[in-house]
Design a protein around this nucleic acid. Structure first.
Lengths: 182, 182
DNA sequence: GTCTATAATTTGATAGAC
DNA sequence: GTCTATCAAATTATAGAC
């Protein structure tokens, strides 16, 4: 049941944001009462933090090993694919929408948010550094922001192809920047 | 007073999102009661739509004329500067945060949101087409998404330099793509 | 673990006096 | 235009029975 709540909460939070749904909505989704949701997650912040922990593990697992022998473009492609799967399910990145709202969120949520983006950044730094790219730290953040922007705009415009165009462009730029005049 | 409410509402909505503040918060900001806010804006959707209309005009004015004789990089730089000013005031783009939440927002807000992004896209298409770039439609959307992502990540990580890095990279990519081996 | 019941607060919004 | 007063509904969260 805890997993069912987390699943419903991810869908709700990715669609409507932290303040856009209630424990009663969630309870109705999984067929119990809101008091029972509070049994599993005392506060909404607890729910969000638990959700983000799960989400981080799921995404990093989908990215694969940043240090393996795949080509850089394949690694970045795996990251894009993981987010595209999320986009196709409706809603953007869980941490993307929470990032947009983060100034008005409980403090533990903000901390978990930074944890997520730092984990992603570190994965990307590893991937860039492994391919001999210069300034891997900078590239990692630029790539992340391009990705989050592609999710946001593709979602807002209701145009899934926008995500492919934007991420395709970004990967191509990274690849040529990393291995110039190949 | 209507302008004061709009100003306070922009700050609140850019910080906390559509559901993250109340008419009472707003009333306190400008020193009146919430009933008086409802006199100026009957519903919260009315407020958001009015806000977005103002915001759109303000931003397009800051971009300047898309058809003038500035270099493409200068035009794109003006767009980035306009958003950077917003970022420095705290909070991301008004339409960026509303885009993230848009699935759970009143319908008129979603319509105004699309209007904003279409206006921006058209401005950018004009700028790209004027410099002889190929696929100006595609470039416009890719540029917009890079920009929104840069705002989001810079905000979430609390790192203003991230915005400069990401947008600088994007402008450089557009420029070299438009005028190859210059 | 889930329920009923409810507390305590907040919310968007309205009515009507001034 | 702003106020007081208020409504009806929703919200997060808790207490205690089963």
């Amino acid at each position: 049941m805890k997993d069912a709540i987390l699943k419903a909460a991810e869908a709700r939070m990715r669609r409507d944001g932290f303040h856009g749904f209630s424990f009663r909505d969630l309870a109705a989704d999984v067929g119990i009462k809101s008091a029972s949701v509070h049994y599993h997650f005392p506060t909404k912040a607890d729910l969000a933090v638990g959700l983000m922990r799960n989400y981080r593990e799921e995404m990093l697992a989908a990215f694969g090993d940043a240090g393996d022998d795949r080509a850089l473009a394949d690694k970045l492609g795996a990251v894009c694919d993981a987010y595209k799967t999320k986009l196709s399910q409706a809603g953007i990145c869980l941490c993307g929408i929470l990032a947009a709202e983060h100034a008005g969120l409980p403090e533990p949520v903000g901390a978990a948010l930074k944890d997520y983006f730092i984990a992603c950044r570190d994965w990307l730094i590893s991937a860039f550094a492994g391919s001999g790219a210069d300034e891997p730290e900078k590239r990692a953040l630029v790539f992340s922001s391009a990705l989050q922007g592609a999710l946001l705009m593709s979602h807002a415009m209701g145009d899934p192809t926008l995500f492919d165009h934007a991420t395709g462009e970004t990967i191509r730029a990274c690849d040529s920047g990393t291995r110039p005049r190949q």
